[in-house]
Design a protein around this nucleic acid. Structure first.
Length: 588
RNA sequence: GGGGCGGUAGCUCAAUUGGUUAGAGUACCGGACUGUCGAUCCGGAUGUUGGGGGUUCGAGUCCCCUCCGCCUCGCCA
């Protein structure tokens, strides 16, 4: 080793010992006679003092620019009283240098490396190696490592086998767009990069592995979001001879172990289970943010005869009128309410009806708001009660078709929580969303699998597959934390006859589409055990657990929203000769 | 593919209604200083205003095209 200690470990008790440190120059303070250097590595910052009297050493120290890589030999000294730095663990001591060695000079950094200094996303990503040199970034990467270690410890301890599955796979129809990889050996044929190991892990169950897990990279060629990257990691899990509760139980115990590891607190189990239909009604979406209340209520039946035409017409047209109450929201300004209405409009609502119940200082029973004048006697109180509005609360209503109303109120709910400061930055609100519909309508009027085609229908609802497909519930479950979908899974179909019926319901007949799944049907017919599993998004989980606002923050080398790597310049064109070898001709 | 916000010195930002030589902090360079730790003080240098075109006596500012970053709708079984 080039060093005897790290920059984070020297204490007062080390005073007098000889030491050699290596690190980056974090700052240089020149006092003419004496020069101070802050030396930084992953473990901390230690002050180095270079006293006068040794001309060469002082001159060398003066020439050290920021981020120069140096090796310092010296003696640990207790700092004089009053000169200690309480802000650093190493602040009691300094290393009095007897020699300085420049291991590598550094050009002035393109972005400041110190924590607390700002730089735009663009330059941070372009110089990611400097960005990652910041202590805060290193804490995140360490946190991610601890989380993944805890995950692996948990599954290892429960007898799961870590099996690797292919990344280069056959292209499969449906689902996320695949990245496509040309085959040199088979010109004109292509691999797909796996969007998930779904089929392989089911085949491992057929093989009898019984309990499988893997931390695996997945690839999806879809547009990016703050919680989506084109390549991301999953904790992929599959278990045999299990039911829903077995999978959910294992995962929430794993989650509790991870939360204990990173937060040191106990996650109360079992997690709340919320049926999909309730999630949609009360929170307007299938991944509710339960860090705050503001539940949505349906008041359609209260406004069928309303004096307010917008409400009456929506109800008559088969739509819904739903709303929520913001506690203390009567204090919100007109400007803030206009902001909420804008949110509702952007989410697809035609408008947002609002009503204040008894503002502070106003008489009992008073309601104020643009549409109150249209309401007949008692109606205002009835719908206010309907959404649970008390004195001083603000009621917000959307009248629309059910889908639009859900989307708009979900957006309004989040915006109102932010406006009223209801978001607890440290909270972890976890739940399972269960009882999803198995199928959903396609644009063409047919049916498609909502989760994937191998999700098992509820066994007591098999007949509905042929009579009323939209009502069939799936044996599926999503893990939701703070409004992010952290994972999703299901009990799979393990019998060929049931799989055939699901295929038929979603219009996969015995044609070419079916051929792509032949190997799976054959596998199911070869003694597939009842099985199920889940896939958890590692990056999202780390993001939520470390309370970071963006998935890029938890990935060492992420892509931008246009799926580029600003540091390396990927993707890039390849040479004509490479294309020729692959028999790929660019479109003219 | 659509919508919104942004791009000015290495970095973070400012620049009135279109008007003189585009400024500040920081970093950088030089000097002073023996106890700083966001060191301080004095001095200096720093620009393709993302790129291209247009309007105008005059464009960082207005118009068109385009590239890049972020957020978002579609998309993500």
């Amino acid at each position: 080793m080039l060093r005897t200690h790290t920059c984070g470990e020297l204490r007062g008790s080390d005073a007098g010992t000889a030491t050699t440190l290596c690190g980056w120059v974090a700052s240089r303070r020149d006092h003419g006679g004496i020069v101070f250097l802050d030396l930084r590595d992953r473990y901390g910052i230690t002050q180095v003092s270079v006293p006068s009297g040794n001309g060469d050493l002082s001159a060398l120290a003066l020439g050290l620019g920021p981020e120069t890589v140096v090796r310092v030999r010296g003696t640990v000294r207790l700092r004089p009283g009053g000169m200690r730095n309480e802000k650093r663990p190493t602040g009691e001591v300094e290393v009095e240098a007897s020699s300085l060695e420049v291991l590598n000079p550094a050009r002035p950094p393109a972005i400041p490396v110190a924590d607390g200094e700002s730089a735009s996303d663009e330059v941070r990503l372009r110089h990611r190696y400097l960005d990652l040199r910041r202590p805060s970034c290193q804490r995140v990467l360490e946190g991610r490592h601890r989380i993944l270690s805890a995950v692996r410890r948990f599954f290892d301890g429960e007898g799961f086998v870590d099996v690797e599955t292919p990344a280069l796979v056959r292209w499969t129809p449906g689902g996320a767009r695949n990245y496509v990889v040309p085959s040199r050996v088979h010109p004109g044929s292509f691999y797909a990069l796996a969007e998930s190991p779904q089929l392989f892990k089911q085949l491992l169950m057929v093989a009898g592995l019984d309990r499988y897990y893997q931390v695996v990279r997945c690839f999806r060629d879809e547009d990016l979001r703050l919680d989506r990257q084109p390549e991301f990691s999953q904790v992929d899990v599959e278990m045999s001879f299990v039911e829903e509760e077995d999978v959910m139980g294992a995962v929430e115990r794993m989650l509790a172990a991870v939360v204990k590891e990173v937060d040191g607190r106990d996650l109360p189990l079992p997690l709340r289970r919320i049926p999909y239909s309730e999630a949609m009604l009360r929170y307007g979406c299938d991944k509710p943010d339960l860090r705050f209340g503001l539940p949505i209520s349906d008041v359609t039946d209260l406004v069928r005869e309303s004096g307010f035409t917008v409400f009456r017409a929506a109800a008559a047209a088969g739509g819904v009128v739903r709303g929520l109450s913001v506690p203390g929201g009567a204090s919100l300004s007109r400007k803030e309410i206009d902001g909420l209405e804008k949110v509702a409009r952007e989410a697809g609502a035609k408008g947002l009806a609002w009503m204040k119940r008894e503002e502070p200082g106003s008489p009992e029973g008073e309601f104020r708001g643009p549409f109150v004048k249209f309401l007949a006697g008692g109606e205002a109180a009835a719908i206010a009660d309907g959404v649970g509005a008390a004195r001083g609360d603000l009621s917000l209503f959307v009248a629309a078709d059910e889908e639009s109303a859900c989307a708009a109120l979900a957006a309004v709910r989040g915006a109102a929580a932010r406006a009223k400061g209801l978001l607890d930055g440290t909270a972890l609100a976890c739940c399972w969303v269960v009882d999803f519909p198995l199928l959903e309508r396609t644009e063409g009027g047919g049916w498609a699998a909502r989760h994937h085609a191998f999700t098992s229908p509820r066994p007591d609802q098999l007949e509905l597959l042929e009579t009323d497909p939209g009502r069939v519930l799936a044996r599926a479950y999503d893990l939701v934390i703070n409004g992010f979908e952290i994972g999703g899974g299901s009990i799979r179909t393990h019998r060929t006859d049931v799989q055939e019926r699901v295929f038929r319901a979603i219009g996969i007949g015995p044609g070419e589409a079916r051929e792509k799944f032949t190997f799976l049907l054959e596998a199911l017919a070869s003694g597939a055990p009842p099985h199920g599993g889940i896939a958890l998004g590692v990056d999202r989980l780390v993001m939520v657990l470390l309370r970071l606002p963006n998935i890029r923050d938890v990935i060492a080398f992420p892509k931008t929203t246009s799926a580029q790597d600003l540091m390396t310049g990927a993707p890039s064109p390849v040479s004509p000769s490479q294309l020729r070898e692959l028999r790929i001709r660019p479109e003219a």
